[in-house]
């Protein structure tokens, strides 16, 4: 599977628009994130891809060919649901073995994948004795046990400790390197910014923004935060303060040594020129990008 195209998909539940003319193209070797507030349509889109919801309109295409979500399509996908809870009385190995057997995968793969997710020692324990993080790892093992072209993860970071997060990052990297497609839905936009290749932002069933994280930062156009430490003894300090005042609305601390101001990205050039001219007056200069959740909120508010 090189490309999966979600084409103009609309899903309505009565008067509720769960998805409205939603379109997205997923490419092999990319990790794509669906982000948006609750009720934005992320889960509905995932359910459309799994065949759990029939859209009112729209189509799915694999490498340009129209496809139905049938056995053949589902045989090519792996899925990790949000907060999955497997049968408490079964062991971790039995749970994974069932999914392996259902997908016609050899038993040897079960232990391999349990080892991969760090559950080798717990494989003979009943699921009722698993922590939340272990259950999430077990879900990941279920998703990874059979070879697939498309991995769908719904809120995969919930309940994961740092080790489990590292595991998830390595899984994403492996899938990307293997030229497969990963689609994940999450609220943890700041956590995942550097782990995904593209993001699609949804609001009220519509795609309001789409692109790489850097694209979305540009689209949001949020100002950068500039922090300067000035040399109180430098003769050019007053001139620098005046120049900064012309560029924006600098905030000085009580002795006017530390300055913070917000600048549009294009104003950085002028700041650096100023820094070069008044170099003696500047001890330190930092440019901080706004957190990605601010980018997210800005894009959502603009869409609203």
């Amino acid at each position: 599977m090189q490309t999966l195209t979600i084409d103009d998909v609309t899903v309505r539940f009565g008067k509720v628009r769960a998805l409205e003319s939603f379109a997205l193209e997923l490419h092999a070797g990319q990790v794509v994130m669906l982000a948006g507030p609750n009720g934005a349509g992320k889960s509905t889109l995932i359910r459309v891809l799994l065949g759990l919801v029939s859209p009112d309109r729209g189509a799915l295409r694999v490498d340009g060919r129209l496809v139905r979500v049938d056995r053949a399509f589902r045989n090519r996908l792996a899925y990790l649901p949000e907060s999955v809870a497997f049968a408490e009385s079964l062991t971790g190995r039995e749970v994974v073995a069932f999914f392996a057997s259902a997908r016609g995968v050899a038993r040897a793969r079960v232990d391999e994948v349990l080892e991969r997710v760090g559950l080798a020692d717990a494989r003979r324990r009943a699921v009722r004795g698993y922590s939340r993080g272990m259950r999430q790892r077990l879900g990941l093992a279920v998703a990874l046990v059979a070879p697939s072209d498309l991995l769908i993860l719904d809120e995969p970071t919930g309940g994961l400790d740092q080790d489990a997060l590292s595991l998830l990052w390595s899984v994403l990297d492996e899938w990307r390197a293997a030229g497969r497609i990963v689609l994940l839905a999450s609220h943890e936009i700041a956590l995942l910014e550097h782990r995904v290749d593209r993001l699609a932002l949804l609001s009220e069933g519509r795609r309001v923004a789409e692109g790489t994280p850097a694209d979305l930062r540009r689209t949001a156009g949020l100002p950068l935060r500039v922090q300067l430490e000035l040399d109180p003894a430098a003769p050019t300090r007053d001139a620098l303060k005046a120049a900064l005042g012309e560029m924006g609305a600098p905030r000085f601390d009580h002795d006017a040594t530390h300055v913070e101001l917000e600048l549009e990205p294009h104003a950085l050039v002028r700041l650096f020129e100023l820094g070069a001219e008044r170099r003696a007056a500047i001890r330190d200069l930092r440019v901080v990008a706004p957190p990605f959740d601010e980018v997210y909120r800005r894009l959502l508010s603009e869409a609203a």
Partner: peptide, 14 residues
């Protein structure tokens, strides 16, 4: 209720 119905129905079976 266990959130596994979707997982089950995502398997290649009717």
């Amino acid at each position: 209720e266990r959130n596994t119905l979707g997982l089950l129905l995502s398997l290649p079976a009717s």
